[in-house]
Simulated scan of single mutants.
Amino acid sequence: MANPWAGEATLVIDGKRHVLKLTLGALAELEATLSSGSLVDLVERFERAEFSTRDVLALIVAGLRGGGWNGRADDLFTAEIEGGPVMAARVAATLLARAFTLPEGP
């Protein structure tokens, strides 16, 4: 189960539940794979709902790596993601939000 207080989210890929997290290393790898701009630009694209499928895939791969996955983006090209592209985009946006905002206290 994912811990939202630790910035985690879950995604079911090929029937297996994965915990995703944007660690500092995963964020650095993500930034290196972005075709344009910085992480701030990526956040802004998501806020404006102007992100690409490439952005979603890069975030999912980074989150999976932060969660301990050793695969590559190519491994997801034929993978079955529960909830499809909409769920993948939702999880990607959740990861960004959790990585760059502090949880609210009780």
Results as ranks from 00 to 15, higher is better:
1 M>W: 01
3 N>C: 09
3 N>L: 06
5 W>Q: 11
5 W>N: 09
6 A>P: 01
8 E>C: 05
12 V>E: 11
14 D>C: 06
15 G>A: 12
16 K>S: 11
16 K>H: 13
17 R>T: 12
17 R>S: 13
17 R>Q: 13
18 H>D: 05
18 H>M: 11
18 H>T: 06
18 H>F: 10
20 L>G: 08
20 L>V: 02
20 L>I: 08
21 K>P: 00
22 L>T: 10
25 G>P: 09
26 A>I: 08
27 L>G: 08
28 A>Q: 12
28 A>W: 08
29 E>D: 12
29 E>P: 00
29 E>Y: 02
30 L>N: 05
31 E>Y: 01
31 E>H: 08
33 T>H: 03
34 L>Q: 03
35 S>V: 11
36 S>Q: 12
36 S>C: 08
36 S>W: 07
36 S>R: 14
36 S>L: 11
39 L>M: 07
39 L>C: 04
40 V>K: 12
40 V>Y: 07
40 V>W: 04
41 D>C: 11
41 D>I: 09
42 L>R: 11
42 L>N: 08
43 V>C: 07
43 V>Q: 09
43 V>M: 06
44 E>M: 14
45 R>Q: 02
45 R>W: 01
45 R>N: 01
46 F>M: 01
46 F>V: 00
46 F>Q: 00
47 E>L: 06
47 E>Y: 00
48 R>Q: 14
48 R>A: 15
50 E>Q: 15
52 S>M: 08
52 S>K: 10
53 T>Y: 02
55 D>C: 09
55 D>K: 05
55 D>Y: 06
56 V>N: 07
56 V>H: 07
57 L>N: 11
58 A>H: 13
58 A>R: 12
58 A>V: 09
59 L>M: 10
61 V>E: 14
61 V>K: 13
62 A>H: 03
63 G>K: 15
63 G>F: 12
64 L>A: 09
64 L>P: 02
65 R>N: 06
65 R>E: 09
65 R>G: 03
66 G>N: 13
66 G>S: 15
67 G>P: 04
67 G>Y: 09
67 G>V: 06
68 G>D: 05
69 W>V: 04
70 N>Y: 02
71 G>N: 12
71 G>M: 11
71 G>L: 13
71 G>H: 13
71 G>P: 07
73 A>S: 14
73 A>G: 13
75 D>K: 13
75 D>I: 10
77 F>G: 12
78 T>Y: 05
79 A>S: 14
80 E>F: 09
80 E>L: 14
81 I>P: 06
81 I>V: 15
81 I>H: 04
82 E>P: 03
82 E>I: 07
83 G>P: 01
85 P>C: 06
89 A>G: 04
89 A>H: 01
91 V>M: 04
92 A>K: 01
92 A>C: 01
92 A>V: 02
93 A>L: 03
93 A>P: 00
93 A>Y: 00
94 T>G: 01
94 T>K: 09
94 T>P: 00
94 T>Q: 06
95 L>N: 04
96 L>N: 00
96 L>F: 01
96 L>E: 00
97 A>Y: 03
98 R>M: 00
98 R>K: 13
99 A>T: 10
100 F>W: 07
101 T>E: 03
103 P>Q: 11
104 E>L: 14
104 E>K: 14
104 E>W: 03
106 P>A: 15
106 P>M: 10
